[in-house]
Design a binder for these strands. Structure first.
Lengths: 203, 203
DNA sequence: CACAAAAGTCAACACTCGTTGGCAAACAAG
DNA sequence: CTTGTTTGCCAACGAGTGTTGACTTTTGTG
């Protein structure tokens, strides 16, 4: 369709690609630290040193910009190579590295901060949960149990993230990662692999 | 100071008290379901069926209105009467009742939803955590250990609330309270009373 | 009734927001 | 050089925001 047809077979980069990337980078920073509502397209444009109308041209709308900025991959590890009794700790260590360590980008904080007030961001986070965590557990457990265990793990992991990165609670935010891992690993291990109480069918 | 001086010794109620209460009630509902930013004074006033300027007269500013609407009392129970091994479950049951049961108002969801993006709300939630949960544990443990255990409990409890009431994750939002309690009680019990790993001092 | 305080109404201010369309500069292709 | 496309800037729109001050109505008290 466009005149770029001759170059679109390989990654010949356009001049505007740098602008697009600058916008996306600025948007991520803004969304991450201020959330969806308090991030203005004008502020993103100013941080990227371009005109607000360019954001609209390249991403259509604020919603489109957010969608482009909020792609999340948990990069969940394959636990089958880890001894069964250490999988909880391994999974927890992975999450911590993903949130604040060498595997971190700001997209997780971005998404969490926005999902609490924005419906679409919440759906997106639900999808991440469903398609990445639940699906991973589905390779080991039946669907109902996988969902149950995934919910428990998510509650603990998201709770730590909430208290540590967003609310900055004293008992969570100021502890070294290794200490947190030591305290939380048994919980994740139990949610991941230990037998859970059978649920009463009646009242 | 005012002409009400003759009646302020007892609770003689003014005519405006109903309006004040209506504003506060409407504000709680709005803040709870939309968060601080997306709640407008105009919408609160419309829900309370009065003029927006009345909100300003009675609460000074949007910030003042939020402060009035966001008073939280966890009503933490005295656990000394509960057998030591059941305290985790008892504390967890109390939290669930506080969030969604007979002890619930919407103020906890209100505060959590707003605290994620609003700095002042976050400080307020920090204060609740510090003055109510940490203080309760300080009657049993030394300050550093009380803070450590409080952080762990808060992470699990807030994580469940986040996933269940705000994000509505499938594995959390659609489970009956008793099932959740059965799954989570051992975790809280451990954070509350079980020995925790001693922390390595070196690297 | 007369008068003052309280309670409520109305219109407007100054501002920020997402979004749009027109127009100028940079650039590539003939 | 002359086209046409891409890239960018500028000004403005309409809507919604917190907040303010003047004005009218109601209420309570001598």
């Amino acid at each position: 369709m466009t005149a770029a047809a001759s170059t679109d077979q390989a990654g010949k980069e356009r001049k505007s690609d740098r602008t697009r990337a600058a916008i996306l980078s600025a948007a991520r920073a803004q969304f991450q630290s201020h959330g969806y509502d308090r991030t203005s397209i004008r502020a993103v444009a100013a941080a990227a040193d371009i005109d607000p109308s360019m954001v609209m041209r390249y991403y259509g709308s604020k919603e489109g910009l957010f969608a482009a900025a909020a792609h999340v991959d948990l990069q969940l590890p394959n636990l089958s190579g880890v001894p069964a009794r250490q999988r909880g700790r391994a999974l927890l260590e992975h999450f911590i590295r993903r949130w604040e360590g060498d595997l971190s980008d700001d997209v997780l904080v971005l998404l969490l901060r926005s999902a609490v007030t924005d419906e679409r961001a919440a759906e997106r986070l639900q999808a991440v949960f469903q398609e990445q965590l639940v699906l991973t557990l589905s390779r080991v457990y039946d669907p109902p149990e996988a969902l149950r265990r995934a919910g428990l793990i998510a509650s603990q992991v998201l709770g730590v993230a909430l208290g540590r990165y967003l609310l900055k609670l004293p008992g969570l935010a100021d502890r070294p990662p290794e200490d947190l891992i030591a305290d939380l690993a048994p919980t994740i291990q139990r949610y991941l692999a230990a037998p859970l109480p059978s649920l009463a069918a009646g009242s």
